[in-house]
Design a protein around this nucleic acid. Structure first.
Lengths: 343, 343
DNA sequence: TTATCCTACTTAATCGATAGGATCCCTCGG
DNA sequence: CCGAGGGATCCTATCGATTAAGTAGGATAA
């Protein structure tokens, strides 16, 4: 048997029928006699025939697959529990609706280049910061998409989070406790940030922090800022550096739980008590944060819901139901045990 | 502009050339004059034309995508850090080779049904326990695949782990420490297990445990066994039940780090000291386990390497290079702080 | 007996793009 | 002025399946 090569024509020839008959045998049994159907199926079996996925997709014009356009390489994305949870939310909807999930990382470092290589019915576009070439490209291709972790954009559905409010709240909380020497442990905004300033969630969080500082007569220039890639070890390293300064901070406000974990690691190693000597806060409220010791005070954002909603919006768009829904999800401050009044 | 509807014929008509010319303009510039090319590209731009992904794939016979055939729904898979790490390994290779990664959960609870809906060049097949219908189906379709977390099978490349050795080693370690009342906290083998017995990694781990017991004059009937779905809270619940027994175990041997975390949670809540009163071991050595308190003693399996290797084998198979490589990866016992001699 | 209707298929168009080989046209040498 | 050469361009088969529309043959009804 010529492995994997049998086509519907081969089966048709073997069974002495036309290709249409073969198709009917598989998809439309009532349009063909039982006897012929048997004959066709037998021939198919003998030849090891299975209908080509691509052929069917091309004809049907649908892939039953949704793409996730990622801002970074897979290896980086998947080591981040944030994305795991986000994908979980999107996955819930996919499970229900029978879609598969195509992870599409940049191709040759270009998100744009990756688009033509993904056979999907629509995209969830994650945190694109740089230019908006992607949006134009998707629009011109007529592929539905939903924006996530980006800036709100008319004409495109999106799911956003109230990052600004969350950041404002946690900052105010620390200030209310009496902290004045704050350090912000932020994710690396990438090389483009110098030129264009912050974008998306990071911009909103920074704005929220700045906002909260005002009533206390402080500004961003009064807080120490460390920008590092999101990983526990980077959080650790940055915190060690931060604490080595004269007048080290009394509170570390991390913009990601992962970074906060690293900060606590560093403090523990330096034998600095959390929270009695230094307070630490996170952002995200990953499930691990409740188990973490000390239990982490953090800003909860509904990551799973975000994923679910993005997938929901996308599927609506694919079906041509809704046009351009926007949704902003709330955040909430979860006070646990990693924060206290300064010594 | 008729959004997303422009085809190469439309462009050809608009530019006054044939469809081939359009194709050349995009893929084979040297076969066409610069002037015509410009004209075609201009027409394409005006019409909002972009070559159809599916069309190209059908013609090229390649999708640049590899599928991961998953044994459970996406929502379940993605909440398990084990899979996140595995996918990360596979993702590293995809990044390098320019493949996308298609997550393919069962369709209507059937792994088999999901296969025809995935347009991929090959599959990584994860932990299929039930029957082997999938292998037959993939073979008949002529799609390359690699088996993971399964039983070794001639005629199909696979990447396995020495689960048996790892389980034997950790069991012996606990016995050597002096523990005699062991509890095994195992993952739920699913409904089929009653009829067919254990399969794959679980079978091997159980065998390893049994093997280690022999020299000490013990057998599986001397250890308590709890089988639960892999989640921290299930580990917690099972452990509470385990400890409520008369003569509770002095050591809990979990077959997954996640379950071990849950076990420690439960013990801490019961104010039972780990490791001085009860020892706990895991399996996997997730990166969190080194940060966990007490630092978890566990069996390390090279999950990321497994993912990388699976993807490597698969891509070799897709390119028709290697035939049916098998690889068995080693495990190693990582002794940390969650184990000690019994009181 | 003939018009009518089904059943069971077949024919052919369609989904979009790619590329081998044929064809066209221009230029240059003889 | 004609033929050869060569670059530009076009024709058409192909990838593999689906499905609207058409047809042959038999059964049914008038």
């Amino acid at each position: 048997m010529p492995s994997g090569k049998a086509t519907s024509s081969d089966v048709a020839a073997a069974a002495g029928v036309s290709r249409s008959a073969v198709s009917f045998a598989f998809n439309n049994p009532q349009r063909i006699s039982a006897a012929t159907r048997e004959r066709i199926l037998a021939a198919a079996e003998a030849l090891g025939y299975a209908p080509s996925t691509l052929g069917r997709m091309l004809q049907a014009g649908t892939t039953n697959s949704i793409g996730v356009l990622l801002p970074q390489r897979l290896a980086r994305i998947l080591e981040n529990p944030y994305y795991a949870r986000f994908l979980m939310g999107a996955g819930q909807v996919c499970d229900q609706e029978g879609y598969t999930l195509l992870l599409t990382p940049p191709l040759q470092d270009s998100v744009l280049k990756a688009i033509p290589y993904a056979a999907v019915d629509g995209f969830i576009v994650c945190g694109l910061e740089a230019d908006r070439g992607e949006v134009a490209e998707l629009t011109r291709r007529g592929i539905p998409f939903v924006l996530i972790d980006s800036d709100r954009l008319e004409g495109a559905p999106s799911v956003e989070v109230d990052d600004r409010g969350g950041a404002r709240e946690v900052t105010r909380y620390l200030l209310d406790l009496g902290h004045r020497r704050l350090a912000v442990l932020s994710m690396d905004p990438g090389p483009a940030a110098a030129a264009r300033g912050y974008r998306g969630p990071l911009a909103r969080r920074m704005a929220g922090i700045a906002e909260a500082l005002v009533p206390f007569g402080l500004s961003m220039s009064d807080v120490r800022l460390a920008e590092v890639p999101v990983s526990r070890s980077e959080g650790y390293r940055a915190t060690r550096a931060l604490m080595a300064a004269t007048e080290p901070p009394t509170a570390i406000l991390a913009l990601s739980d992962i970074l906060a974990y690293g900060a606590v690691d560093a403090l523990q190693e330096l034998a600095i008590q959390v929270p009695s000597e230094v307070s630490v806060t996170g952002f995200d409220d990953l499930s691990e944060s409740a188990w973490f010791r000390p239990r982490l005070t953090t800003v909860r954002q509904p990551i799973v819901t975000k994923g679910r909603m993005a997938a929901d919006f996308l599927i609506s768009a694919i079906r041509g139901e809704e046009q351009h829904p926007h949704q902003t999800l709330g955040t909430s401050l979860i006070v646990r045990e990693s924060t206290a009044k300064p010594a």
